[in-house]
Simulated scan of single mutants.
Amino acid sequence: MHFQLTDDQRALQAGLRDVLKGGGVEWSELVDVGLFTLRLPEADGGVGLGLPEAVLAFEEAGRALVPGPLVGTELAATLGLTGRAEVVRVPARGTLLVPHLPTLAQVLLLDDHELTVFGPETLDAEPARAVDPQTPLWRVTGPLPAPRQRLDPPTAHRIAAEATLLTAALQAGLAARTVADAVRYAQQREQFGQPIGAFQAVQHLCADMLARAELARVAVYAAAVSGDADEIAGAKLLADDAAVHGARDCLQVHGGMGFTWEASVHLLLKRAWAWEQACADRDRCLDQLATGLADGLAEHL
């Protein structure tokens, strides 16, 4: 598939990268730049762009490691809901975990063929241990109350696919960040009188990181254009692999420094783990691909 960014899309990327540069961006700034209203019609106060532009924006948010309920808030806006929101899938087993629960205005709960909206204050929940310190979790301990809203299956399928795609975009941005951080450190850190980037083993490590990150990026872009559920699942798998393995390799390049709290490398790995489980984990994506493959084969029998 040929995919060439337009001048407007490149300007969107550059503008968001400039806003997010250096980290520490406030939530109000994200609202002001229109991150969550990119796809709303201009008549409704939005920017009137499409899903590919939202993917580009979320890629930049992932690169900057922006915390918070980004995906859910953007998707809630497309449903006419305001305020912070999280999209959470009903787990196949275990308890329901909701990130950022006390700060939310909406909880969008995805079942296999249904999307329900809950008020966070109606959920009985307690704090749960989280791998990412910037993504706190709450465990739902009681039965689910009556929802505020129940949406039809087509809407549920759309939200599920778009949530997976936007999370994949975050992971693609994070993967690109791991490459940049590893290369920068390899150019600065010296051993035996020369930068460690001069050593072939480090060069190969960084090259593998770049290959995975670029493959994930083009897969996410292609899925954003096609909107195909199978392509979205494949893009999420590739983006998760690029982000998690990239963060691990970035830590390897940093050596002992990568394990310290002073370095941001551990945050990259923890966020990659958190986003890997968000919206559609590995098993769900593989199930989607297997179903799509089976359906495709059945059509030709």
Rank of each mutant, 00 (worst) to 15 (best):
M1D: 05
H2T: 11
L5N: 03
T6S: 14
A11S: 11
L12C: 10
Q13S: 14
D18K: 12
E29S: 15
E29V: 15
L30F: 10
V31A: 07
D32A: 15
D32T: 12
V33G: 10
G34Q: 03
G34W: 07
L38C: 05
E42R: 14
G46H: 05
G46T: 04
G50E: 13
P52A: 04
A54S: 14
A57N: 05
E60C: 10
L65M: 15
P67E: 11
L79F: 07
G80S: 04
T82F: 06
E86N: 09
V87A: 08
V90A: 07
P91S: 07
L97W: 02
P99E: 01
P99F: 03
P102V: 08
A105F: 00
L108S: 00
G119W: 02
P120N: 10
A125F: 02
E126N: 06
P127T: 11
V131E: 12
P133K: 09
P136M: 10
P136S: 12
R139N: 00
L144I: 05
P145T: 04
P145F: 02
R148Y: 00
L151M: 07
P154K: 09
P154F: 05
H157A: 15
A160E: 12
E162G: 14
L165D: 08
T167M: 03
A168R: 04
A168F: 05
A172C: 02
R177W: 04
A180N: 03
A186R: 01
Q187N: 08
Q188C: 08
E190K: 10
F192I: 02
Q194I: 06
G197I: 14
G197V: 13
G197D: 09
Q203K: 14
M209R: 05
L210C: 00
A211H: 12
R212N: 06
L215I: 07
L215N: 06
A224H: 03
V225E: 15
V225C: 09
V225K: 10
V225S: 03
A229W: 03
E231C: 02
A233W: 02
D240L: 07
V253N: 09
G255D: 08
F259N: 12
S264G: 12
S264E: 14
R271P: 00
A274Q: 10
A280E: 11
A280D: 12
D283Y: 09
D283H: 14
R284Q: 12
R284Y: 08
L286P: 00
D287Y: 11
L289G: 06
L293N: 07
A298S: 06
E299H: 05
